[in-house]
Nucleic acid binder design. Structure first.
Lengths: 336, 336
DNA sequence: GTGAAAGCGCTAACAT
DNA sequence: ATGTTAGCGCTTTCAC
């Protein structure tokens, strides 16, 4: 990569000082309009572009937001990312992305690379492994370094930073009520993600709704997607079920297939609702009724919150924004 | 964001000079082992982290790769991104991402923000609008600035830079042969993306295969997803068709549904193959046979190619890597 | 073994 | 209206 032209080069070329060139290019009124134009022309003809690194060093601001997400292949996160990028661009920021791939170590390393001055702030969603280890020292570290940080979706309550979450509790609560309203008698909650915060919140919302409805809750927590079929079949053989709420999207599709293979008609015999409004819900047959988290909005709101903090427009208090969920009704639930 | 501790602060704290501190922290043998350790301890206790911006300014290398993709919500691109991130991390680089959202202007702006020294190189896939306008001046600009660049998937042949593509021509050629091998008589090519390079290449591959098979090619080019149904139905009513190859993934699912609604059994009456191995292919019913492009590998290979160029390990010649496609056989095609 | 000094490219306070 | 100078935080050559 051959050296680019610098202010100094331009100064030589134009026979003025570096500062004059700098001021001219920044349209400072200090410089006469004619020299200003002359300098600009020469700069343009040499394709001059100011070096951003040098600027950042001087201004102590990079206009870059560091983003750490657990997985890009989960559609939810790529939607959030879409929102983040849009809002960041609108506010004049760039984003640099690290993927933790659900690993504690990678998350920690990512934090380290962000607190060395290369970003103005951090947006992140906590890795699964971190939530299990409950080791949050790296977050505390980044706070100690005074790098503004906002956590979204998967957050750690003990960490004193801005947060943007989805109302998982209420979303599950409402979905349960919804199933009840379409006359479901026995509602099962299928939770493969009980190891992460959002999974737990959704389960609590379900339990609360069942309690309010004076119904007995039924929950199964398969270890992973492979064990769903067996556990679900076992349960269906033991108890009668006419509605299933799942903590994620993919489980709902699997549950639908399992139920159908065992002779249930959907939605006539069993209604199914999943969490997350993604491609596979839309294209499943029948299409899946889901609790939508407005992923894009979460991304946008995270950026707004962070930038407010960076530019110190926001109050000193920690803010915790909660994005409301919405039920998107499709064909996996009975119409009444 | 309160000021962080610097080398200078450390120098005061330890009563040695800045350069001594710098050398000590970088484990220079010039510095005595005892002072070295003393300084390191103090640095650690003050949570010292070297400022990366300053380093970059000095070293003229950022260890950052700029990535410009047309859309993050297309699964193909998020898979490529996954590959890019993995390989970049492995080679000690970070990535910063811009989304062109298929817009010429955004793509141009993104290039501008990358050629100001903030990245060591650029990886990109060309926006749809750019391919239609055929205005490639911004790419020429970035080349003039000597920023290494690699284009992947959607590339511009006229631009003199490294490229990584999928063998779209061969992929379509092979898929057509595959359909012929399972005894399809009338193979239709459904192409909604004839406006971008890869769509054209796939169509050419199909036409070549049909020519080699001495069959008459049949192609329909709907303007968008909404017009697929009508055009396809019109065609099915006019001609007999027992196999459909589509230029993308989503069209294949739509085609499958349209065909079924019109009384065709899949795969018994019509076999269908799509391009791109994504979630919806896997979860469609029946699951879809596709031409897989190995998105992740494309990402990894792009990074390797770029880093070779950045670190000048590669020869001076432009390289054009071609990733082979593979047919993933599922249930939308007849078994023989 | 340690330090002084220059310089990466830019900005801005302070001369002139 | 233009130039001089210092300095952002770091590395590195050269001197002691």
């Amino acid at each position: 990569m051959k050296p680019k032209i610098t202010l100094k080069d331009l100064a030589n070329l134009t026979n003025v000082s570096v500062s004059t060139v700098s001021k001219a290019l920044n349209d400072s009124p200090e410089i006469g309009i004619n020299t200003r134009n002359r300098i600009k022309e020469i700069a343009a003809s040499y394709n001059y572009v100011p070096n951003n690194i040098a600027r950042s060093l001087k201004s102590k601001s990079t206009k870059i937001i560091g983003v750490i997400i657990p997985a890009i292949l989960l559609e939810f996160f790529s939607k959030v990312l879409y929102g983040i990028e849009q809002e960041a661009t609108a506010l004049g920021y760039k984003i640099v992305i690290c993927l933790s791939n659900e690993s504690f170590e990678k998350e920690k390393e990512s934090i380290d690379t962000f607190i060395n001055g290369s970003v103005d702030g951090i947006i992140l969603s906590v890795a699964e492994e971190t939530q299990q280890k409950k080791d949050y020292s790296h977050f505390e570290k980044s706070l100690k370094y005074n790098v503004p940080m906002v956590m979204f979706d998967r957050v750690v309550n003990d960490i004193d930073c801005d947060k943007v979450t989805v109302d998982d509790f209420e979303g599950a609560y409402n979905a349960t009520k919804f199933l009840n309203d379409i006359d479901s008698k026995n509602i099962l909650f299928l939770n493969v993600i009980s190891n992460i915060s959002v999974g737990q919140l959704r389960e609590e919302g379900y339990r609360k709704a069942m309690a309010d409805l004076k119904k007995t809750p039924h929950v199964i927590n398969p270890k992973n997607y492979n064990s769903i079929e067996k556990e679900l079949v076992d349960f269906l053989n033991k108890k009668s079920v006419d509605a299933i709420l799942t903590a994620d999207e993919y489980s709902a599709v699997l549950a639908m297939n399992v139920a159908r293979m065992h002779g249930f008609k959907i939605p006539d015999d069993i209604s199914i609702i999943g969490f997350t409004n993604g491609l596979i819900s839309e294209h499943a047959i029948p299409s899946l009724t889901v609790v939508s988290q407005h992923a894009e909005n979460i991304g946008k709101l995270s950026v707004k919150t962070l930038v407010d903090r960076i530019e110190e427009k926001s109050t000193k208090h920690i803010v915790h924004e909660v994005v409301k969920t919405k039920i998107v009704e499709r064909n996996s639930t009975k119409k009444i």
